[in-house]
Amino acid sequence: MAFSLSAEQERELGRILSRYPNKMAATIPVLHLCQAANENWVSDEVIQFVADKLEVGSAHVKGVVTFYTLFNQSKPGKHQVWVCRTLSCALRGAEGILHHCEKRLKIHAGETTADGKVTLRTAECLASCGSAPMMQVDKTYHENLTAERVDEILDRLIAD
């Protein structure tokens, strides 16, 4: 099925375009908009849609999508969890937090739970080093984590 945006999302696309001197510059923000409108992933249809809207080649859009880690090239779980594991977090127990998540969700980092609820990933430094260990759940940062806090957070995701 061809990808399309709602009327409100189209208006947002118009607002994005108004910020730049050319259409190509809107590639990343428009990809974010479309990814959010497509269950959080960028399909071939989305790539074609963005290419047509911005009057750029689909190879250009694909090149951008494959460069940046936050564009999903396959459908992730309903919720996405990123555990930061770079040095400041590692010094504060990130490894333990990650293992705890893996055990609790019964998956490895990089995988999605069988019910499609949660995708678990690792992240590199998320600019929250002073409140380590930390993880990002969808758009929210959870900081100064303990195993108990992680359980509470994951329980809510699993129940959702």
Binding site: T86, L87, S88, E124, C125, A127, S128, C129, G130
Partner: peptide, 11 residues
Amino acid sequence: DEGEPGTFKDR
């Protein structure tokens, strides 16, 4: 872009 490991001031 604040991505340098250990850096969390701009945020």
